[in-house]
Amino acid sequence: MTNALARLLEIAPAPSEPRQKDWGDVERRLGVRLPADYKELIQVYGGSNWDDYLYVLEPDCPNKHYDLITWARHRTEDLEDLWEVERKPAELEAEGTQVVALWATTDNGECLYWLLRPGLEPDRWTVMVNEARGDRWEHFPVSCTQFLASALDGELRSGILSSLFPLAAHEFRRLRAV
Score class of each variant (00 low, 15 high):
Met1Ser: 12
Asn3Phe: 09
Leu5Gly: 01
Leu5Ala: 03
Arg7Asp: 08
Arg7His: 05
Glu10Gln: 12
Ala12Phe: 12
Ser16Gly: 13
Arg19Ala: 06
Arg19Lys: 07
Lys21Asp: 00
Lys21Gly: 00
Asp22Gly: 01
Gly24Arg: 07
Val26Phe: 00
Val26Glu: 00
Val26Leu: 01
Glu27Ile: 07
Arg28Gln: 09
Arg28Phe: 01
Leu30Cys: 08
Leu30Asn: 07
Val32Phe: 12
Val32Glu: 13
Leu34Ser: 11
Pro35Asn: 10
Pro35Arg: 12
Pro35Glu: 11
Tyr38Thr: 05
Lys39Gln: 14
Glu40Gly: 02
Glu40Gln: 15
Leu41Ala: 05
Gln43Cys: 04
Tyr45Asp: 02
Gly47Arg: 05
Asn49Thr: 13
Asn49Trp: 00
Trp50Met: 05
Asp52Val: 03
Asp52Phe: 01
Leu54Gln: 01
Leu54Thr: 01
Tyr55Ala: 00
Leu57Val: 01
Glu58Ser: 09
Asp60Phe: 09
Cys61Tyr: 01
Asn63Thr: 00
Asn63Trp: 01
Tyr66Leu: 04
Tyr66Trp: 13
Tyr66Thr: 00
Thr70Lys: 11
Ala72His: 02
Ala72Arg: 02
Ala72Asn: 03
His74Tyr: 07
Thr76Ala: 14
Glu77Asp: 06
Leu79Gln: 13
Leu79Gly: 01
Asp81His: 13
Val85Lys: 12
Arg87Ser: 11
Pro89Thr: 11
Leu92His: 05
Glu93Val: 13
Ala94Tyr: 02
Ala94Glu: 13
Gly96Val: 06
Ala101Ile: 10
Leu102Gln: 14
Ala104Thr: 04
Thr105Met: 09
Thr105Gly: 04
Thr105Arg: 07
Asp107Gly: 08
Gly109Pro: 00
Tyr113Phe: 15
Tyr113Asp: 02
Leu115His: 11
Leu116Cys: 12
Arg117Gln: 15
Pro118Lys: 11
Gly119Cys: 13
Glu121Ala: 15
Asp123Cys: 11
Arg124Gly: 02
Arg124Ile: 00
Trp125Asn: 06
Trp125Gln: 08
Trp125Lys: 05
Thr126Ala: 09
Val127Gln: 06
Val129Glu: 10
Val129His: 06
Gly134Thr: 10
Arg136Thr: 06
Glu138Tyr: 09
Glu138Met: 09
His139Asn: 08
His139Thr: 03
His139Tyr: 05
Pro141Met: 00
Pro141Asp: 01
Cys144Tyr: 03
Leu148Val: 08
Ala149Leu: 07
Ser150Leu: 12
Ser150Phe: 12
Glu155Ile: 11
Ser158Cys: 10
Ile160Cys: 02
Ile160Trp: 03
Leu161Cys: 00
Ser162Tyr: 02
Leu164Arg: 13
Pro166Glu: 09
Pro166Gln: 09
Ala168Lys: 15
Ala168Val: 14
His170Ser: 12
Glu171Ile: 11
Phe172Gln: 04
Arg173Ser: 14
Arg173Val: 10
Arg174Val: 11
Ala177Cys: 04
Val178Met: 08
